[in-house]
């Protein structure tokens, strides 16, 4: 753990060094922004007057720091800007948060392959909760219909649509496993994805350049790339958002399961766990010896997928 923390610290230092140049560039850009704003307002005053607030916010958004380098004030400022932009552009009253990880908490997840019956309520709940794109039917969770004896989802059927459960099959769900030693975070060239102290692997959507290296690095197919801004029916947009979680992502970003960071950091269960009709999903604090997930690890036969890769996922499958 201590090794991890220093690594995290080194990242910070590395980013800090660069920030000098960034500050310089920021200075330039603010000047440029002022110049261009003056230029625009000079040419087409009516449009500029209408959009000046939006333009200003967008400029400020464009030159903000990586989330990990922001102070709490800067986080609050960017959240406020994003909320205001959502109001200006789409007329939505978004409540965005940037609440930090809870002390003494490391999230862990259990999936009971005996209990899951393939109803996919979790998938539907996840799509709604996380403002996923309805047009391309993006899903963070996948459920595979598996032959008995097989444990690799690659051999299962991920596109079934018939009455479930089917005799002599079992169902296995996959999503981001929030590896402790996550390969995706190492592949990112802009350090836009990292492991938070509570174990959640998150993406700073505004620092993601959409290169998809992380998608290639993930051995679990846990990441999704969006080819466009999520298209969601207006009344279905979840307005309770988190900066690192389910806010409506810009176009061309990498996204993934965040253990519903906007819920779990406020003590709530992830949407998939809450929706599961069979209780196949167990979620809790690994550092709490009394938690359900610790009970599962202690008393059940558990395994993790592709454990030999040394990625240390915090997602265990278990059987009754």
């Amino acid at each position: 753990m201590s090794a991890k923390k220093t690594e995290y610290g080194e990242d910070q230092d590395l980013l800090m060094k660069k920030s000098d140049r960034r500050t310089f560039l920021k200075g330039c850009s603010v000047a440029a922004a002022a110049a261009s704003a003056a230029l625009t307002s000079g040419c087409i005053p009516s449009v500029a007057a209408e959009n000046s607030e939006e333009m200003k916010l967008r400029w400020q958004e464009f030159f903000k720091k990586n989330y990990r380098l922001m102070t709490q004030e800067e986080k609050d400022a960017t959240v406020a800007r994003l909320e205001r932009l959502a109001k200006l552009r789409d007329g939505l009253d978004v409540q965005m948060g940037s609440y930090p990880p809870l002390k003494g908490v490391l999230y862990g997840y259990g999936f009971n392959i005996t209990r899951c019956e393939g109803f996919m309520e979790c998938v539907a709940a996840c799509v709604k909760e996380n403002n996923l794109d309805r047009k391309t039917n993006t899903q963070y969770i996948r459920i595979f219909e598996m032959e008995p004896g097989k444990l690799d989802p690659g051999t299962g059927d991920g596109q079934y649509y018939h009455k479930v459960p089917v005799e002599n099959k079992f169902y296995m769900g996959t999503q981001c496993f929030h590896c402790e030693n996550a390969p995706c975070t190492k592949a990112c060239p802009t350090k836009a994805t990292w492991r938070e102290p509570d174990g959640i692997v998150v993406v700073d959507y505004d620092w993601c350049i959409g290169c998809r290296y992380c998608q290639a690095a993930c051995p679990y197919y846990g990441r999704r790339f969006n080819w466009g801004k999520p298209e969601i029916p207006r009344q279905e947009i979840n307005l309770r958002q988190h900066y690192l979680g389910n806010r409506v992502r810009p176009k061309g970003k990498m996204e993934k399961c965040t253990f519903c960071i906007q819920r779990t950091r406020k003590g709530r269960l992830p949407a998939c766990v809450e929706a599961c009709p069979t209780g196949a999903r167990v979620f809790g604090n690994l550092l709490d010896p009394d938690s359900e997930i610790r009970y599962v690890l202690k008393h059940k036969k558990v395994f993790r997928m592709k454990e030999e890769l040394g990625t240390d996922p915090k997602f265990w499958y278990f059987i009754d």
């Binding site: 393939g118 109803f119 991920g158």
Partner: peptide
């Protein structure tokens, strides 16, 4: 037994 809540592509 019932149909799943959604489907995957």
């Amino acid at each position: 037994k019932r149909f799943p809540a959604t489907y995957s592509v």
